[in-house]
Amino acid sequence: MEERKDYAPFEMKHFYGVVVFLLIILIGMLSYNSNAPHYVKNPSESLVHIIDSAGLLHATQMAEILYLEDSLYQIVDLRKPKFFLNNHIEGSINIPIGRILDKEFLHVLNQEEKITILIGSRSSESVIAYMMLADEGYANIRVVAFSVDFVMSNIVEKYAPLSGRYDEERTVYDYARVISETGGSTISSETVKSNAKKIAPVKKKKKAEEEEGGC
């Protein structure tokens, strides 16, 4: 009787221990699912964040960063390695967009020392990577609305950051007009005076008399 008394509590402890251990493993396995979403921003927050154009760098800011070789920034090129090897911004790091969330790049992309600028072959590529990183809680991420090619041609090779497509989301064409021009007379409807007329209201305010000769 005495022997069993000693033995029984020990067995019970053992039993509890095993059950709890299994339970923990089970819970762990259930909750540890690398594919489970773990956004820090819910969809509405994410939407507000991008509608405000948060984290968007302008072409002139990009120019300044490149010209002054600002070491606070690192440029991450999201294109495929073959494009990167062909032509890239000096000092930029290549992390193809497919691997942007890999653990091995976590310390590169989520850090307090440097601000990361995401840039890709087009603005959609960089903004998708940006949204995923920002919504996951990565800090100090920025995005641009133009491509690597734009940077090469309009900032690196020559200084013209405000010419060409420096913001891909801007209307470059007056669509209705272009269509009508191509349309010729085949779809005619009404006659309108041509060309530049439609370029926005220009103020015709009279300047206080400018001295002649100025120009």
């Binding site: 603005s123 959609s124 949204m131 497509r165 989301e169």
Partner: peptide, 18 residues
């Protein structure tokens, strides 16, 4: 679609996420 593809990409990302 949008003027460029950035706004469309934003919408795509949200929609895909959802």
């Amino acid at each position: 679609y949008s003027n460029g593809d950035m706004t469309a990409a934003k919408a795509w990302t949200l929609a895909t996420r959802l």
